[in-house]
């Protein structure tokens, strides 16, 4: 790996005072950015510069900064979570950029994810979808059963686990030309549909979650496949197909 060096970049960042303000792209110059720093560290550096200039720092979401919480959410140079694959924005490094680059940074764009301020969007629509059916009503605390008491085929367990890897970041919605949440909901439905514990509420779960998804104003999936490519957790389109099957089964009942 080549040694870290410092680069100078130009940033075009979406600034929006609050959810009602119109908002616009602002241009910032930032010098001496180490290619060893992460993208969010670069934004921290920019914010320090803004504060020293007595300007309002840029608001952006982040929490764990290690790719597990799903809070970070930036649309960088036309791609959700930026120009690398299989990562969240907090895992993006400045070594992906060159000296003199202009970098666009925008919030997730979706009717269901309104901008709160600058680059921060309200993703509570995902919470409401989850609350509509993304759970099992089996008591899992207290008298816990032995993990192997219910045999589950290895392939099902693996697929369920893969689906459960979704961190709810919303990159799928952000990147989809239709602002569709099908990959997220597909993952959440699949995670339970594949396991015996999830079968009890399977019918109501898929109907309710899809109804909530539609009510939130997400678009309809046209199978472009962009979500699968931009998803930091590699959630597969198979999960959408599985949800479509589950939905058909549930609607027939």
């Amino acid at each position: 790996m080549s040694a870290a060096k410092n680069i100078n970049i130009t940033l075009k960042i979406w600034r929006q005072k609050d959810s009602k303000a119109k908002g616009q792209l602002e241009t910032y110059k930032l010098d001496n950015v180490s290619t060893a720093s992460s993208f969010l560290e670069m934004l921290d550096q920019l914010n320090e510069q803004l504060v020293s200039e007595r300007k309002e720092p840029i608001a952006f979401d982040h929490d764990c900064r290690e790719g597990i919480c799903g809070m970070c959410s930036l649309y960088i140079n036309g791609r959700a979570h930026g120009p690398d694959t299989g990562i969240t924005t907090c895992q993006l490094h400045m070594r992906m950029f060159k000296d003199g680059d202009t970098i666009y940074v925008e919030p997730w764009r979706s009717r269901a994810f309104p901008v709160i301020k600058d680059l921060v969007v309200d993703r509570s629509a995902f919470d409401r979808i989850q609350q509509a059916g993304g759970f099992v009503s089996v008591n899992t605390s207290g008298r816990t059963m032995d993990a192997n008491a219910i045999p589950i085929p290895k392939t099902d367990a693996d697929k369920s686990f893969e689906a459960a890897a979704c961190i709810g970041c919303g990159a799928c919605v952000a990147t989809c030309k239709n602002g569709s949440a099908m990959l997220f909901v597909g993952a959440k439905v699949s995670q339970y549909a594949l396991l015996p514990q999830g079968k009890v509420e399977a019918t109501q779960r898929v109907l309710n979650m899809v109804r909530q998804m539609d009510e939130e104003g997400f678009g309809n999936c046209t199978n472009t496949g962009a979500c699968e490519i931009e998803c930091p957790k590699g959630i597969s389109l198979e999960n959408i197909a599985r949800m479509n099957r589950e939905y058909l089964k549930a609607s027939m009942k």
């Binding site: 239709n178 678009g219 199978n223 496949g225």
Partner: peptide
Amino acid sequence: QNKAARPVGYAKTDGSSSSLASRNM
């Protein structure tokens, strides 16, 4: 409906993650 799901568009889009045909059905 799909257009309405994104009232404000992006200033920059990349497009490498989906095919031209799929975006223009």
